[in-house]
């Protein structure tokens, strides 16, 4: 009998398990290990069918622009024209949706960066304007952070940002963020 597959963090063997701030933490870095991820692409000519199915199953409209919509444990982030990155903190099965669905739970890593100095820390890695008037909660950007392709969104006004990258880049991205946060009181801890 083959052993059951066990989800493992892509970071544990590669990064220091804890970097603590002296005094108040300006920025907190964590790995999200509680998310199921799926990439969903609309099939040509069946875009409406997918949008209808998502509305019926989850009660949300698939965003047509670079936004992220949340419905209970489930969220859909725009990931390019006709593509979305679905995430869920529950046991949600996206495979019944009428589109091309591929599970990314172990393919991508999600890093969460939050706190009063989160924006300043990310600004050293990302060349987009993250000022609230340009990028707010619910906004999504497909860009790169220190040359690593990321899907970035702001999930609350703390502010909390989440960066989704391919699994093999997670440790490098983590180290970049930890380095950028070193002078801003970073509290980085593996889950």
């Amino acid at each position: 009998m083959p052993e059951a597959l066990i989800a493992k963090s892509p970071l544990r063997p590669h990064v220091a398990s804890e970097v603590s701030a002296h005094g108040d933490a300006g920025v907190t870095l964590r790995e999200r290990l509680d998310l199921r991820l799926a990439q969903i692409s609309a099939l040509r000519g069946r875009e409406q069918e997918l949008a209808d199915a998502v509305r019926q199953a989850f009660g949300v409209e698939l965003p047509a622009t670079s936004k992220r919509v949340v419905s209970g444990p489930v969220a859909f982030a725009w990931a390019g024209p006709g593509r979305w990155l679905a995430s869920s903190t529950a046991e949600t099965d996206f495979s019944a949706l009428p589109g091309a669905v591929s599970d990314q739970s172990d393919g991508r890593a999600v890093l969460s960066v939050s706190g009063p100095k989160a924006r300043e820390t990310l600004a050293t890695l990302i060349s987009l304007d993250l000022h609230p008037r340009a990028f707010a909660t619910g906004d999504v950007a497909l860009t790169h952070a220190a040359s690593i392709a990321v899907t970035l969104w702001q999930s609350d006004d703390a502010p909390t940002y989440e960066l989704v990258c391919f699994r093999t880049f997670a440790a490098t991205l983590w180290r970049w963020i930890a380095h950028a946060g070193a002078s801003r009181g970073i509290d980085a801890k593996l889950g």
């Binding site: 670079s66 024209p81 060349s127 987009l128 860009t143």
Partner: peptide
């Protein structure tokens, strides 16, 4: 047209 203005390093 999908993402807005970006630096040429992304292209």
């Amino acid at each position: 047209p999908h993402c807005g203005p970006r630096g040429v390093d992304e292209f």
